[in-house]
Amino acid sequence: MSDLRVEDLHFSYKSWDVLKGISFSVTDSRLAVLLGASGSGKTTILKCIAQLLRYDTGRIYIGEEEITGKSPQELNVGYVPQGQILFSNMSVARNIEFGMAVKGVPREERTRKVKEIADLLGVSMFLERKPRELSGGQKQRVAIARALAIQPHLLLLDEPLASVDAFSKEALALEIKRVQQETGTTTVYVTHDQTEARLVADQVVILSHGKIVQDEPLETAVSNPSSIEAAILMGIPNSIPVKQLKEEILAKYKPKTGVIIPFDEIRLEPNRSEEDSELRILGKIVKVTQDIYQNPILVLQTDSLTTKPIRLKIRLRKQKNFMEAKTLEEINAYLPHNKIRIL
């Protein structure tokens, strides 16, 4: 609905600089994922946006309005904190209508709206239950319903799938995406899990140590990471930061932050000599596994590239010679120089 703009946000706690100048914006009712490791400051940004924390400097706009210094009550922001926080003394229905109730919305309208939102999130059958009778996923739906019931300018979700069981994760993620699109609510979604990010994001903002390292649409973020750190956070396999690489590799490719060995470009060819245009990787196959689409993945342990052995993933789709390879066998893998991505 409304655009969000964050400008040069600084926040420190005791002597620790949690946020060191965060700027980003989310427009056109999109869903932005704030992706980062724990302690990178994601939750802090959400709380600053909701005005639950007082930041040192910086400006935050919702639409054209600057909200710094306002109280959370005035903002009309839907905030869903981590850990499925429901008001444990109230039924699901009363949880959902809470925001309307405190604003004095008439009962009939509240009831109608609760039903509408509950239908949207698929919790209509639980309306009279108490939070402790719900599963993790159900609680999270209710928490989101409660946040949406006030028709917020902005929806803030903090690790919404964190304590949802593995089976329901993906479904709920897609559901959140659907609801977000249906309601057209500009959303900031915090997570540390790139799989989730890929499922829901329109835009990915990658955060590291209180700074934004990349801010791109999802496609760009995956295909064109700005740094090795972003690549690792986006879950791009075989991303190796510079500090792990051997001197000779550094000398050869001169990477700034690291290299990515694209996992579907590696060829396993046990009985072949090295060509100039290729990088030869010598290693052992230690494991055979699958990716989420059930393609077989080989795990190759090697010390050709790094000072300490690392494990590289190799997608097997095109590996004609795979049948010849056996696990725990020394094997040569080859990769054209120009396929290596230098960051």
Binding site: A50, L52, P72, K103, A147
Partner: peptide, 15 residues
């Protein structure tokens, strides 16, 4: 008491 519950309540407009 959960700090989070209070924060949620505040963002929902409760005094």
């Amino acid at each position: 008491l959960s700090q989070e519950e209070e924060q949620v309540a505040r963002t929902l407009g409760a005094s």
